[in-house]
Amino acid sequence: MNDGAHGVVAYFDSPKAILEAAYKTKERGLMGVETYTPFPVHGMNDALSIKFSVVPWATFVCGLGGFSLAHALQIWTSATNWPINVGGKPFISYPAFIPIIFELTVLLGALGTVAFTFYLMGMPNFKKPINPRLTDDRFALYVPFSTANGSENSVHSFLNGLGAEQVSLVTEEL
């Protein structure tokens, strides 16, 4: 078939149709399948064997970072760098330090979560949309051509048999 093609995209018009199609690709054992949908289709993680997201780890690590930073900042400035006696309170007034410990934990945890999510998603990037309707009302299933997925013709005809509205070749890397 077309030598420049990287894979093939099948378009569907409902979340139900694409979910069923994704399960069929799983049964057939196709590799590297991806879907593009205007909203998250639930059940897709199972159909595409997507593992549990690692994002929460970033939240934990960055939150812990904020927690430690708040301790270090408050203790170092209040008790080490220039200790000032405020109303006879101890230099390390732990209860009074709690609000800022909490705030910095949340701040760094949230920023770290979002930064790491963008990193995982490879964003920002300047890739062109595959099809403008994929953020509107169409659902796409992409199967890359590879030796594991069998011949290009067989993939193409398999997707044609899934009841897609349209099946087209993709010539660029997705």
Binding site: Y36, P40, M44, N45, V55, T117, L120, N125, F126, L134
Partner: peptide, 15 residues
């Protein structure tokens, strides 16, 4: 560069 890939939705929804 958002495209709505299923793997992105997975991380996105978690975040």
């Amino acid at each position: 560069g958002w495209r709505g890939a299923a793997r992105h939705w997975n991380d996105y929804e978690k975040a």
